[in-house]
Simulated assay, not measured.
Amino acid sequence: MSVARRRVPALGDVGLGWRREIAGVIGDLRPGFCEVIAESVAVRRGRARPHPALAHLVSSGVAVVPHGVALSLGGAEPVQRKRIRHLAACAEALDAPVVSEHIAFVRAGGIEAGHLLPVPRTREALAALTANIERTRQELPVPLAVENIAAFVEWPESEFTESEFLTELVERTGVLLVMDVANVYANARNRGRDPQRELARLPVEQVAYSHVAGGHDDGDFYHDTHTARTPQEVLDLVAALRRRVDTPFMLERDGRYPPAAELFEELDAIAAASGAAPITAVAREVWV
């Protein structure tokens, strides 16, 4: 099988999400790139003021991607310009090669959900999502990539499967994708489907990079918590995706941060699954 070539040039093979709690460890790594939650970056008078440790990464040549969680691209209402401007300011301050957001909505009628909610897979919702992506891209200085989310429920009366919906979105907009293989796994597990088959149906030609993470199985549902080590089943999806597309992979950790040695083992496992060189050698000399 030929491997599709879709790579943001500035992104290396293996990265991780930048969080203040592990900023010291990240500073001693050699990540291919990092991703920072855009809303965690202060913006005053139109200028972003990133954390000094994050600014140091940028100055040392590490690509940093602002990752938004509050645009509500999938909402019926137009995206708020102030939120687009915040994302754009982050991109400029961090010299980002790309920015990303979610295929989701987080507010409706002025009410904030406080969570990423799935978009109905209908033609009407697809039109609204397409319009909001176009509005957003008009004010961004760099390309936009959008991420598939994990969701416990699906809206009734869907007119598309998830793969059909993503394929149609890409065909309409040409937007890049953040393919979250952990979310593919979570959705498949919770719906009684084969994760490998679900991944195989998704479009990969426009994938800019991919998220990897661990979660929690409570016996009834698998929760995409980002607080546990990446399970082997997700690493298998990493390998499967890498066979189809030349894309970087990035570890997401949010809370319950492990000791440095365990974090390095997880990063090495992701590198091995994706056929990439490890990024931990130098940091191990400091932390292990």
Score class of each variant (00 low, 15 high):
residue 52 P to H: 09
residue 96 A to P: 14
residue 65 V to L: 10
residue 130 T to C: 13
residue 99 V to S: 12
residue 91 A to Q: 11
residue 44 R to T: 05
residue 70 A to D: 09
residue 100 S to L: 02
residue 69 V to C: 01
residue 66 P to T: 03
residue 55 A to E: 15
residue 72 S to T: 13
residue 106 V to M: 00
residue 97 P to R: 03
residue 90 C to T: 03
residue 100 S to Q: 09
residue 77 E to F: 05
residue 102 H to I: 09
residue 119 V to S: 04
residue 49 R to P: 00
residue 74 G to H: 01
residue 85 R to V: 11
residue 96 A to Y: 06
residue 131 A to S: 12
residue 102 H to D: 08
residue 54 L to N: 10
residue 136 T to H: 06
residue 106 V to S: 06
residue 127 A to F: 00
residue 107 R to S: 15
residue 51 H to S: 09
residue 67 H to Y: 02
residue 58 V to C: 04
residue 87 L to R: 02
residue 48 A to H: 03
residue 134 E to F: 01
residue 63 A to L: 03
residue 130 T to L: 10
residue 45 R to V: 01
residue 86 H to P: 14
residue 71 L to G: 03
residue 100 S to V: 10
residue 80 Q to V: 10
residue 77 E to K: 05
residue 95 D to Y: 02
residue 55 A to H: 08
residue 73 L to N: 01
residue 131 A to P: 01
residue 50 P to D: 11
residue 47 R to P: 04
residue 127 A to C: 06
residue 106 V to A: 01
residue 108 A to R: 08
residue 84 I to C: 06
residue 108 A to E: 05
residue 125 A to S: 15
residue 129 L to W: 04
residue 129 L to R: 06
residue 102 H to C: 10
residue 98 V to L: 13
residue 127 A to K: 13
residue 84 I to Y: 07
residue 87 L to Y: 02
residue 116 L to A: 04
residue 74 G to Y: 05
residue 80 Q to E: 14
residue 67 H to C: 09
residue 45 R to D: 15
residue 112 E to V: 11
residue 107 R to T: 13
